[in-house]
Nucleic acid binder design. Structure first.
Lengths: 202, 202
DNA sequence: CACTAGTGCTACCGATCGGTAACATTCTCG
DNA sequence: CGAGAATGTTACCGATCGGTAGCACTAGTG
């Protein structure tokens, strides 16, 4: 049951047989998430990736470019995680939903959890930064997929339910680093209760 | 109905008859919120406050010190806003709650809204930064006051309700800058529905 | 073997960062 | 008025920022 979140959360050392570009993205993912985008310099990223600044700039035109690739990477993986969860429970929306809640539980109880990396990035970046478009599109997509899921499970008001679930989850992730972990950890129970008690209909 | 949020949101020019310290805090509040803590230099803050770096450092030992004062200021004002809302509706918990939801509506529909300034700060600061303690204490306090409010209004499970309302609100504030404004703006209706439908008891 | 593409390395650039010294100026208030 | 405190101004510090030039090195390919 190793979390899908932590699978690449650590990039220390990293003299593995990966291409420099991959190692740089790994390092950026780790450092940006742990310390914030503005707090991490490109030199530190290159060093963590067991390479140097020049190689970094051969693969990314600028730090902003790297930030966009970082966001894109996270968005892609988020999509893939949901793809996988859905694929493992085909044609049974209830089980798909339950599996997603299990995944949420994994995420929130991960001790490295520092909130949603994409939301954190959005906080740090100006509204005009190109990475913001990637982030907003991802979040929109995620919300829409929840709607589809709840519609498939025949909930009476899938839009409303998706709003609630989406906001509760987002609230939990941001709260885990500044709202007391209590409410954030109790959100899984709340979600299960919510999903069980909501009316369904044809 | 001018928002309690925007009352000091703009600090431009600012050659008003305020003490330099006040102007610096005003400027920090504005710039930190709009651009993020790490993205704003002390020189820019001093300039916006119509003063200079030396005066800034006469009132704050370091930028970190200023950040702590910034967080403290926001926390105090948050407390005071809730104080005022409660004081204006003494001895009628239902009206207090309704007034708080109205306030939430004001906050979320403010076009300058960029999420909770304290949450945003927490995202940018390391867990060991002294301002983090201020932020976490404030959020904890806020959550506890919600519990008290719902208990006073005789909801059957005030703790659970407070968790839900708290997380929905936090989720809405973070989502407004990266989750599509849709769910965030619909949260007010959700809150009103939630509060109206929840069972009360003795 | 020679050629090429990718990488490592070092030294450097101008700009800006947080923070300070020293001194001139203004303001407050007895 | 006169004294002391607060503020303004300028110039500066070392460190670090994002980003680049130039060249040595390695590895794969024909």
């Amino acid at each position: 049951m190793r979390s899908a979140v932590g699978l690449a959360a650590v990039a220390e050392g990293a003299p593995i047989d990966r291409t420099p570009r991959e190692r740089i993205l790994l390092a950026a993912r780790d450092l940006f998430y742990r310390h914030g985008i503005h707090a991490v310099g490109v030199e530190a990223i290159a060093e963590t990736a067991s390479t140097n600044k020049m190689t970094l700039y051969r693969h990314f035109r600028s730090k902003d470019d790297l930030i966009v690739a970082y966001a894109q990477q996270l968005a892609n993986e988020g999509d893939e995680v949901l793809d996988r969860i859905l694929a493992e429970n085909t044609d049974c929306p209830q089980r798909q939903i339950a599996a997603w809640v299990d995944f949420v539980e994994d995420v929130l109880t991960n001790k490295r959890e520092r909130g949603c990396a994409l939301a954190n990035a959005a906080v740090e970046l100006e509204a005009t930064h190109p990475a913001r478009a990637v982030i907003e599109a991802y979040k929109q997509r995620k919300h829409d997929r929840l709607v589809g899921l709840f519609r498939a499970a025949q909930y009476r008001d899938p839009d409303l339910l998706a709003d609630e679930v989406f906001l509760l989850f987002e609230g939990a992730r941001i709260s885990i680093q500044c709202g007391g972990k209590g409410p954030a950890l109790r959100v899984v129970g709340m979600l299960r209760g919510l999903l069980a008690s909501r009316p369904k209909a044809a």
